[in-house]
């Protein structure tokens, strides 16, 4: 037990983590490029045209994985924030701070592609669809986290305040999600949902999973690079 924990804390020291992060980031970056190319090939050329929505549906190969990532990254961010608060480890706080911009980016991509998809499908750029609305609020949560950390000069206070906000946020995310969903049924009735619209063919699922994996790799690579920058800044 003790030997195990010693090893963990050894990796948690920024000095040892710095070179390790560099290596992992390089491999993940390469994997992201390859997977992204494969995923887009499957999505754009292999997957069949949808009977109802034609070619426009193909944007889901970016939209859905981005939406998955946006929510997942928030949870991971809150996880690192909680670890940082509990064990007072600098590296965990850095991980949380480094994940936020990537999470916000994926949230923005999900919103943007959702809007692109909405135009040919519903005829408007924006629909107050439950998922899109939840994503919008998630984007605000990311912005709040980043704005709070940016507003505080004292590094330690910034890290810990951001961490607490992330934890409060992650408790609220499911509540927000379900309340928005209820609100949507009250005001609009069930609408055609982006993810459920085309009946899922096997190739489509494969394409989406490959893209999701590509986004995973990209997130890991970019986050680790950002952590390396934070380590340098704080030295």
């Amino acid at each position: 037990m003790t030997a195990q924990s010693v090893k963990w804390f050894w990796y948690a020291s920024p000095q040892t983590f710095y070179p390790v992060a560099g290596v992992i980031a390089r491999w993940c970056g390469a994997a992201a490029a390859v997977l992204c190319a494969a995923g887009l090939y499957i999505g754009l050329f292999v997957a069949p045209t949808d009977a109802q929505q034609g070619e426009a549906y193909r944007i889901i190969f970016i939209h859905v994985p981005a939406a998955w990532m946006s929510m997942f990254i928030y949870v991971v961010m809150a996880f690192w924030a909680a670890i940082g608060l509990a064990f007072n480890t600098r590296l965990s706080h850095m991980m949380a701070s480094a994940l936020a911009p990537t999470g916000a980016l994926f949230t923005f991509i999900a919103l943007w592609t959702g809007s692109f998809w909405g135009k040919p499908t519903w005829g408007t750029w924006w629909v107050w669809d439950a998922r899109l609305t939840s994503e919008l609020i998630l984007l605000f949560l990311y912005f709040g986290f980043m704005a709070l950390q940016a507003a505080i000069d004292d590094r330690r206070r910034a890290e810990r305040a951001g961490a607490l906000l992330a934890i409060v946020g992650v408790v609220n995310v499911p509540i927000i999600y379900y309340s928005v969903q209820w609100w949507n049924t009250l005001h609009q009735g069930a609408s055609v949902s982006l993810t459920r619209a085309p009946s899922m063919a096997a190739t489509m699922l494969t394409g989406m999973l490959v893209m999701a994996l590509a986004f995973w790799m990209y997130s890991i690579a970019v986050t680790l690079l950002r952590v390396r920058c934070l380590i340098l800044e704080n030295r």
Binding site: I137, F140, L141, F143, G144, A147, A151, N172, I176
Partner: peptide, 15 residues
Amino acid sequence: LLSLLVLPLYVPVLI
């Protein structure tokens, strides 16, 4: 800043 942090968390109460 306070409104940016807090208003999104108010959404369920508002709804």
